[in-house]
Design a protein around this nucleic acid. Structure first.
Lengths: 139, 139
DNA sequence: GGCTACTTGCAATACGGTTGCAGTTGCTTG
DNA sequence: CAAGCAACTGCAACCGTATTGCAAGTAGCC
């Protein structure tokens, strides 16, 4: 467990952030969750440790900004966060399950543009693509 | 124009709602928009006609409930509404500019799936597709 | 160890979304 | 056409998620 904290500390610092106790707690919790967690979830679960909601919020957004977490939403207009692991590369579409919140990478998906009238970024594929629906487990 | 109001009136009544002036104004505005419009947008644009925001909200949700409008979101946590009509029936991707927030319908875009391994919903195109990038004005 | 930039707690605000209640009105029916 | 009633509207308020300013506290660099 102490080793795990050192690892968290190292990774936070490697990403240019200070390894504060609250940040480590947030990162540990999100990494331990198997589904995306909301700010509210995290704040509730860390309330026993005395962290203020504003702090939790800032930590979540800071960690997301440096790429340790990913902010996502499942269509209910609540932002959720999940851990980003090493092999991740953002250059392909993502599928989000609107039921369980699972995010899957979809490199096998591509945009097909049937007519020329589209923004340049779209034509150049310089866009983020999010696909939202029910995964096979929830369908 | 009067004919157009009669048509709106008829369609609203045909869907079991009362054809009140505010409802007709809302439906007309949303039908005239070429991109999904938010509650706030509609309220602002109809403010000169004196309609209260609560009324606009209720009208939007009522019209969506009976199927004359479709509620949709483009990933920015603001609900938007678009008209449902014969040619606009199918759900289609929306492009949102990450800089200025402009939203565009993208019926000319379609998912191309290169390999069979994808969630069933994706293969059946039972998904919402959100495309995010810079529009031509912000690029 | 000192110092500085970053972080946190507190308190408040912002914003989209929603609702209760009393008065108004669309529309059905006689 | 008029009456009646359920649907609709304006007003005022509330809700939950998201976000921010400021002063005090602290991580970490030198």
């Amino acid at each position: 467990m102490a080793k795990n904290l050192d690892e968290l500390r190292a990774v936070v610092r490697a990403n240019g952030l200070r390894a504060t106790p609250s940040r480590l707690a947030v990162l540990e919790l999100v990494r331990a969750s198997d589904a995306p967690v909301s700010h509210g979830d995290v704040a509730d679960r860390l309330a026993s440790q005395g962290w203020d909601r504003a702090t939790i919020y800032r930590n979540l957004t800071d960690l997301a900004e440096v790429g340790l977490l990913r902010r996502t939403d499942v269509g209910d207009h609540v932002w959720r966060f999940e851990a980003v692991n090493a092999e991740h590369d953002a250059a392909h579409p993502h599928f989000v399950c609107t039921e369980c919140g699972t995010v899957e990478c979809m490199p096998q998906i591509e945009l097909a543009i049937h007519r020329v009238k589209a923004p340049r970024a779209v034509k150049q594929r310089q866009v983020e693509v999010h696909v939202r629906g029910l995964c096979d487990a929830c369908i």
